[in-house]
Design a binder for these strands. Sequence first.
DNA 1: CGCTAAACGGAGTTAGCCTCCGCTTTTTGC
DNA 2: GCAAAAAGCGGAGGCTAACTCCGTTTAGCG
Lengths: 198, 198
Amino acid sequence: MRADALRNRERLVEVAQSAFANNGIETSLEEIARQAGVGIGTLYRRFPRREDLIAAVLAERYLKLTECALTLAQHREDADTALTQWLTLLVEHMAIYRGLSLAVKEAIHDQSTALGRTCKEMMDAATALLERGQSQGTFRTDVNFYDVMSLCSGIVTAVERRAEKRADSDVPPVDPYLLLDVVLKGLRSGVVGGGAGG
Amino acid sequence: MRADALRNRERLVEVAQSAFANNGIETSLEEIARQAGVGIGTLYRRFPRREDLIAAVLAERYLKLTECALTLAQHREDADTALTQWLTLLVEHMAIYRGLSLAVKEAIHDQSTALGRTCKEMMDAATALLERGQSQGTFRTDVNFYDVMSLCSGIVTAVERRAEKRADSDVPPVDPYLLLDVVLKGLRSGVVGGGAGG
DNA sequence: CGCTAAACGGAGTTAGCCTCCGCTTTTTGC
DNA sequence: GCAAAAAGCGGAGGCTAACTCCGTTTAGCG
């Protein structure tokens, strides 16, 4: 890769990072290119899809989450605590850019996108946490990790929306940790078999 | 309202209904106007925002959900069963148009939109179901109805995404009833105080 | 220095949202 | 019935943002 290309790439990721943080993940790509001082063509050559840019921005963060999951899996202690800790991190991570939780949910099953592939590794590592708990009888066995991710993504989306409307009316604040607690409580095995028939 | 205006209005709602069902809620408004045989200006005069059209399409359905909530609230029997039944209906309802769950989540706090106002009545009726259960000790008292709606919306979003990608890879199907069961289980009081610290 | 592949960048195309306003149809008053 | 007025129609046009294409520029190498 040529030196100027590398420089531009880095600059784009840098600008995108702060643009996503300020304006959400839907920030105009032309705006990002302008701020980075490159042409729109340059941005598209390097990041053909918006997700590719998102994936680049998130790369380190995902790596950290993956490592964290691996570490938690190795310390073969309390499976409940392990999953709780990791999901807490995940929820905090997904709340960083407005719109991110949805983008992740979109990409989660799609190995053809950079975001999807990056996600995959992390998912694999974290899946182990759930499955360990399941084999120990800590968590109910009829849910898979996609289900858990989906619920967490729902939590983050709720927080995002609520934050946007905060100026409005009498909207109460939402506590992601509370919602996560509800989900985790629902995941624990206890007396299995709730009531929602299907 | 003039007769021709009423006719056009009905035609638009009719076309929008099937367009939303086939292409999701983000279908181009110009496409809807074209199919209805009216100009784009006519559509916008009657439905200034996309949400107004959505609200019109959903009006009857919301009314049914509201009535259902009221009925369930009056039969002062099992609060758990009541909420379970209603949320099951809700989830089924929100899965009808791709993107609807998000639109509802967007509008839920915004009384300035038609969708928000229609939602409000339904929410008020359903909130009673949760609160009855809470005062009876059936459900944990630290969550409000917005929280429950948010989690349900997350479930539906997951189902929508999964359905879109079904052609892909080895994606397992998702069961909304299962996820709803997880949420409901998490809502039941039992020994309150899970583990997700904040 | 000079050559070449790589990279650049922005003009141009497409698509959808939304507004504005001259024209048409319905309704109303007589 | 008929004409005036009110209501409604519809699409041209402005706008923004995604995305493509290709002539121009430049880094890197010998």
